[in-house]
């Protein structure tokens, strides 16, 4: 039998009661944590042994209800799944416990997750299909078709990725990684007949084109769903289903192919011009500053890859998408 180890940890814990407090504050607790503990055990002990008014959400304790996600030293985590010793190894023996989003805090670790649920609801997170009420046979989905869902239906809606996403913090319209994973779950379902969902998640501002590609969502997901993989798939599906709009973001993605086909390496100015069209004028002030410092290649100085014939041939033979 392995022995249980113990470590001393100083916890700084976010405290706030929206009904009473003007500003949040931190309480400190020195506690022994063991190699058996998960983060939720610590939350429980703070409440049971130190302060009964300490509030947090918990339910299943088995990584399936998604209630107990919080942040440890700024990292989103599912409290019932994350081992304390792993957190100590990563961040040291002083740990800060915060709610997933401080600005949405209601009481201590409990936040108003309203925006998360609104965005989830906005992507039509259910199957849209005309199914006969009394079918003559089963509606069978093949294992290959099921595999296309890429585990997206394992999402427990804990919000860890949503509140780790930097775009969600800045752009209130943005649906966020969890909603996109849900949208993918249903748009990738062979039985689904809804085209609006895909259009909806491809709109600028709210949709996948505003993803900054930071991979924070992939890093924090306690179910290892890899939301950004689904975001990439939703981009691709927009082209496959012919719903990609002719906008700056779409032209930017398509422009890479055009540029590579022409020179192998990117023609940076040409790409911005193709993407922006007349909108390129807004980049002129910065472009001038860059030009002065020798950071803009003139058309006759733009480099070209060697063996361009290979690149041209491969672009022609390997292209699978159209715009």
């Amino acid at each position: 039998m392995s022995t249980i180890e113990t470590k001393k940890v100083k916890f700084k814990v976010f405290r706030f009661n929206a009904d009473e407090d003007y500003l949040p504050y931190y309480d400190e607790y020195d506690m022994d944590v063991t190699s058996e503990d998960v983060v939720l055990d610590v939350l429980n002990r703070i409440k049971w042994e130190h302060d009964g008014s300490f509030s947090y959400r918990r339910s299943c304790r088995h990584g399936i209800c998604g209630a107990c996600a919080i942040k440890v030293n700024g990292r989103s985590t599912l409290a019932c799944k994350e081992r304390m010793f792993d957190m100590v190894e990563l961040f040291g023996e002083e740990l800060t416990l915060d709610p997933l989003s401080q600005k949405r805090a209601i009481k201590d670790m409990i936040i108003d997750k309203g925006d998360f649920w609104e965005k989830h609801a906005a992507v039509t997170p259910y199957l849209v299909a005309d199914i006969e009420e009394e079918p003559e046979s089963e509606n069978i989905v093949s294992p290959e078709d099921e595999h296309k869902l890429l585990d997206a239906d394992l999402c427990i809606q804990c919000g860890a990725c949503h509140y780790a996403c930097p775009v969600v913090e800045i752009n209130e319209e943005y649906f966020g990684p969890a909603a996109f994973a849900a949208a993918y779950r249903f748009s990738a379902d062979v039985r689904d007949e809804d085209k609006e969902r895909l259009k909806n998640v491809n709109k600028m501002g709210q949709g996948v084109w505003d993803c900054v590609k930071c991979f924070e969502c992939a890093e924090v997901c306690p179910k290892e769903i890899n939301p950004i993989e689904k975001i990439t798939k939703l981009h691709q599906m927009a082209f496959q289903e012919g719903v990609a709009e002719n906008n700056v973001a779409v032209r930017h993605a398509v422009g890479f192919k055009k540029s590579i086909q022409k020179r192998g390496v990117l023609d940076e100015g040409g790409l911005v011009l193709y993407s922006e069209g007349c909108g390129i004028v807004k980049h002129v002030p910065v472009a001038l500053k860059m030009f002065k410092k020798g950071k803009i290649a003139l058309p006759w100085n733009i480099p070209t890859s060697e063996n361009m014939d290979e690149i041209k041939k491969l672009v022609k033979s390997s292209s699978t998408a159209k715009f």
Binding site: K213, Q236, A253, F256, S259, I260, N307, I311, S318, T320
Partner: peptide, 23 residues
Amino acid sequence: LVEASCCGASHLQDYDEFLSLVL
């Protein structure tokens, strides 16, 4: 690697993943 092309800068695969892999 003077023969190398652009990597697609994490945008090309949004449009054409297979092409991005080949390049």
